[in-house]
């Protein structure tokens, strides 16, 4: 046995020499450009390092980061709750429910989040007397609540579509088999359909959270001091470009952490599907 493997080792031809093809040189040129840019960024941040600036703005960056995370978390959770009835209406056979939910989803997916936020924050101000009459003016006066409201409505539309896609990805036979076993519709959904659907939905949900984190930067425009808002404030006071670079590094590490986390969860919950 060992003799056979020895001959195989001896007879194997040498690997062809890997020359410096044009593609390989180009590839290394690009990698070197990235390395140079990274090194340039580090040296710039190092040379522009200003302890006074850092001491003054580091706490506000941290509070901005917290505002961003809280904003995204609340709107994702509210959106998830809201997306269930929308998804139900979207999948129901009732024509009226179907049309309303279709219109809702189409509107919120077809218009920019910025325009929706403006519509709610500035637009609802037009109805101040009416809102005061019902006692909701205190809610719509605050930029923070308006942002949460707009984001929750927006992400609900996207999440409803994710949920619908995931539920429809489970075969019809699963429903039929469950009803043949005498499970009720609700039991089927919880015990049979959702466990399979959520595996499909995990990646889109992760993408949606990442999109919300990136999209939440626009609340800076309506005077909510999230990470982007704090950055804009710091830049407008110091005119120091490194403020934006620090924000970029923070956002990038946030998104990358989340992406790897979703990858890890997906690997973990699909273990039974890999051979």
């Amino acid at each position: 046995m060992s003799a056979a493997s020895d001959t195989a080792k001896i007879q194997r031809p040498p690997a062809p020499p890997r020359g410096w093809s044009r593609q390989r040189i180009m590839g290394w040129v690009f990698v070197c450009i990235w390395i140079a840019l990274g090194a340039g960024l580090v040296t710039y941040l190092f040379s522009a390092w200003n302890p006074e600036l850092f001491a003054k703005y580091a706490p506000s960056y941290l509070s901005g980061l917290r505002v961003t995370l809280v904003l995204v978390a609340i709107s994702i959770i509210l959106g998830a709750i809201l997306s269930v009835p929308i998804c139900y209406a979207r999948m129901s056979k009732n024509r009226v429910l179907n049309a309303i939910s279709y219109g809702y989803v189409y509107f919120f997916r077809g218009t920019p989040l910025l325009a929706q936020t403006f519509l709610i924050y500035y637009g609802f101000g037009s109805f101040r007397p009416q809102l005061e009459a019902v006692g909701l003016w205190g809610f719509f006066r605050e930029a923070w609540y308006c942002a949460v409201f707009a984001f929750a409505l927006n992400t609900a539309a996207y999440q409803a579509e994710i949920l619908r896609g995931a539920i429809e990805s489970v075969g019809k036979g699963q429903w039929e088999a469950a009803s043949a076993l005498g499970l009720s519709k609700l039991q089927t959904l919880y015990k049979v359909i959702l466990p399979q659907a959520l595996i499909v939905a995990l990646r889109p949900y992760g993408n949606e959270i990442i999109l919300m984190i990136k999209g939440s930067a626009i609340v800076a425009i309506i005077t909510v001091y999230d990470l982007m808002g704090e950055t804009r404030r710091a830049f407008s006071r110091t005119f120091d470009f490194q403020t934006y670079l620090w924000a970029a590094l923070l956002y990038l590490s946030l998104v990358e952490t989340l992406r790897h986390l979703v990858d890890w969860i997906e690997r973990r919950i699909t273990r039974h599907l890999h051979r």
């Binding site: 390989r24 590839g27 690009f30 990698v31 990136k214 990038l252 998104v255 990358e256 992406r259």
Partner: peptide
């Protein structure tokens, strides 16, 4: 087929997909 080429491309995607669009615009 070159690993260096793939690396350079992946760095590009990672950076510009990870940054918020508004921040990219300001940068």
């Amino acid at each position: 087929s070159e690993a260096s080429m793939r690396l350079a491309g992946n760095i590009y995607t990672t950076i510009f997909r990870g940054l918020p669009e508004l921040l990219t615009l300001f940068l």
